[in-house]
Write a protein that binds this DNA or RNA. Structure first.
Length: 430
RNA sequence: GACCCCAUCGUCUAGCUCGGUCUAGGACUCCGCCCUUUCACGGCGAUGACGCCGGUUCAAAUCCGGCUGGGGUCGCCA
């Protein structure tokens, strides 16, 4: 039964590194059937923004995590001041320039980190630290210590970037007479090239990944495996399994590079688990602001398109590219279609149009039979007709099954698009 | 610069705690083959790693030291 906390600062969107720290903490709390609390570190009145707070909370929820309690440091300034006063009374801190400084009583400090083992600090970069700023607000290291102690946090799980803060905080715990919590410093996430993570390498916030059409389960699964593994060959775990198997002490010491390829693959795995109906709702939601899906398209049709596209839809947003030809006629023939288009098959395609015109029940099997029959009559291989037909109908050289696509488009649109290809050839000739 | 952390395929990792079972296992990517109307999926296969140097030992990916490389921190930011 561990009480664990995640302490974001609302000065930016929830970063993938922060999300992973949050995940580790949440998983640990749930695993031990303990408590998970959120502590909003909004002591920097200048930089803290309501919109960031909202976005952080939404992202955490969206990822599937919940919390038992939430605190705001901005509402606890009196508490920090009282403790600062106590330190002054004890001659462990003093006022200077309108601020309160804490005097480090330094000796070698040993930290027993749950992830890294023993870390020994032989020196501190300075011998005093501001704990209350001259505007009366507390600094991070101070409010963090007070709150972790007062809230009864017994596991401080945070990023490696906080290791060097820990000896300072340990000294404050001692000066305040508080018991020490356990510490666990998780490695950081590196950019794909192994360097430090920065905006230069694309998306860093959870919100961006959501906008790119990734599933929350996939992001969680991916982030979990970045620095931890279940020790067997499993790559996909349900949340329940993760809670069962996870332990903070099993987290790796090494920083891991972010890989979009692997995230995509994980996302694809989760997409495969969704029913067409679920995907339909998810895709509508993801594309809701783009006005991509025409109003008249109902769920029945949308689901048919989703089934047609199948596992080609790796992210929800992929649907936009993939399904364009289903909704709109104004596509251009793609660049890589040039080889196929170079071969003028006006005669053959005209013959195909005639054959298809005879079909009454426009179903995949029947269309295919007719299509193949036409190729036979012309004395050409089916593929000779298939490729230009696909380009005519979708603008693309690749895509879902041709006959299924034809049925989805319907007889009239197929004919119109084939004629458009013939017109194209005519134009090129002239 | 000072302090601290880290080091297995290109990437994520298993193995390291209790040295021999590791001619180092899995996944992603890439490449090849199969399936096939294309792509994707799926199946099969290939390439690919213990950073370097010493030490300990009969034996080291596993223990120790140094070096190198990467990362973090040195704010009245968090």
């Amino acid at each position: 039964m561990a009480k664990v906390r995640f302490a974001p600062s609302p000065t930016g969107y929830l970063h993938i590194g922060g999300a992973r720290t949050c995940l580790f903490s949440w998983l640990y709390a749930r695993k031990t059937k303990g408590k998970f609390v959120l502590r909003i570190e909004d002591t920097d009145l200048e930089r803290s923004k309501k919109e960031y707070l909202q976005e952080i909370l939404e992202s955490i929820k969206w990822l599937g995590m919940d919390w038992d309690d939430i605190y705001y440091q901005a509402q606890r300034f009196d508490i920090y001041r009282d403790y600062a006063q106590k330190l002054i009374d004890d001659d462990k801190a003093y006022r200077k320039d309108g601020a309160v400084f804490f005097k480090y009583d330094f000796s070698t400090i040993e930290l027993d980190d749950a992830i890294r083992g023993k870390i020994i600090f032989n020196e501190l970069p300075k011998d005093e630290e501001v704990i209350i700023k001259s505007d009366n607000s507390p600094t991070y290291n101070f409010s963090c210590v007070i709150d972790d102690a007062l809230m009864g946090i017994d596991y401080v799980i945070r990023g490696e970037d906080h290791i060097s803060n820990t000896p300072k905080q340990i000294l404050m715990y001692k000066a305040l007479g508080f018991d020490l919590p356990r510490f666990a410093h998780a490695p950081l996430i590196l950019s794909p090239d192994g360097g430090r993570m920065s905006k230069r390498y694309g998306a860093t916030s959870i919100r961006e990944y959501r906008e790119m059409g990734y599933l929350p389960e996939a992001i969680v699964n991916y982030l979990l495996f970045l620095g931890w593994s279940p020790k067997d060959d499993k790559e996909i775990l349900t949340t329940k399994e993760a809670i069962d198997l996870f332990d903070i002490i099993d987290v790796n010491k090494t920083s891991a590079a972010f890989s979009m390829d692997k995230l995509k693959w994980v996302n694809g795995e989760y997409m495969k688990q969704k029913s067409p109906k679920q995907l339909c709702a998810l895709i509508r939601e993801s594309l809701s602001e783009t006005e991509f899906i025409p109003k008249e398209v109902d769920d029945i049709l949308l689901e048919k398109i989703i089934v047609l596209l199948g596992e080609r839809i790796i992210t929800l947003r992929d649907f936009k590219e993939l399904a364009y030809f289903c909704f709109y006629d104004d596509y251009q023939y793609s660049e890589d279609a040039s080889k196929i288009l170079a071969n003028n098959l006006t005669k053959e395609i005209n013959c195909l149009i005639d054959s298809l015109a005879k079909i009454e029940n426009y179903e995949a099997e029947i269309v295919e039979r007719e299509f193949r029959g036409c190729a036979d009559n012309l004395g050409v291989k089916v593929r000779v007709l298939v490729h230009p037909t696909r380009v005519a109908l979708t603008g693309q050289t690749k895509g879902p099954g041709l006959f299924e696509s034809m049925v989805l488009l319907g007889k009239d649109r197929v004919e119109a698009r084939l004629k458009r290809l013939i017109d194209y050839w005519k134009e090129v000739e002239e």
